[in-house]
Design a protein around this nucleic acid. Structure first.
Lengths: 139, 139
DNA sequence: TAATTTACTTGCTTTTTGCAAGTTAAATTA
DNA sequence: TAATTTAACTTGCAAAAAGCAAGTAAATTA
């Protein structure tokens, strides 16, 4: 799990990042929210990564308590909750895009759509704006 | 447009990133190599994060086998090894800088030098070049 | 050549994760 | 309106990983 107890995180930004979202599952949840349009518990479960239900619940709670995502009732279906990125979460986009740029370069198997990667490298601001417009926000 | 169907990105770049450096300790080691000038085993141990020696050895081996860092004998002291970033590792810099930018914004306790953060936000290319010039490379 | 330095490895305990089954609350169906 | 289903978890236990302390091995220094 992400370390929350270490007294010594004050100071370093990388250590702060790790304490807020510094594990595999958190990154994948943020990816789902930011690029895949997923916003329900079962959608994260069914994303195909193999996350366990207790771990998903734990990470969602951590990310919420860190102010990276927001949990609210689905107005159209009261038995569901909707998870969305907060502004703080949305602003992780440059980091995520930088990671994707790197991965596309070094992993032959990575399959980011061609026009996505071209926009990322040629007109990143435009791409970010476009993604932003498609990210659901809490109403 | 941004993909939301989850069918594409079968080789997901975020997942690839996680498989290559996706844990707290790996990020901190990369930070040490990239920004702190650390390059010896004992320097990572003494960085003050509290990493265990077996975990450090494991992460260094993983990062090396993933081609992110390079291990070689210290020509000046044969009982030491020198760890340096490869080109692949160096190219994680934009991601690391994006994380630092975010953390500086959201963590009151983060203490990135003011001119560093200003350069990061105003002339990022220049900053990257500057950092690059200070990163030790394998001889 | 004996002691020391540096970089690990090993064995054991504790913590975290993964897996399966169980629970709860809201919505749908009978 | 009672019974079933759906969605989002929680719980308990086994397995894996991390943390801790002590030990080892290859150079280097005395």
């Amino acid at each position: 799990m992400v370390d929350k107890t270490s007294k010594t995180w004050s100071g370093c930004p990388v250590r702060f990042g790790m304490s807020q979202f510094g594990d595999k599952w958190s990154f994948l949840i943020i990816r789902d929210l930011m690029f895949k349009g997923r916003q329900y518990y079962h959608e994260f479960m069914d994303a195909g990564e193999g996350i366990s239900t207790n771990i998903l619940a734990n990470r969602l709670a951590d990310l919420e308590s860190n102010g990276i995502l927001n949990k609210s009732k689905d107005p159209n279906k009261g038995s569901r909750f909707i998870y969305t990125l907060t502004q703080k979460g949305i602003e992780l986009m440059p980091m995520m895009l930088a990671m994707m740029d790197w991965a596309e370069k070094y992993d032959a198997k990575t399959e980011v759509p061609r026009d996505f990667i071209e926009k990322l490298r040629n007109t990143p601001e435009e791409l970010q704006q476009e993604i932003l417009e498609h990210i659901p926000t809490p109403k």
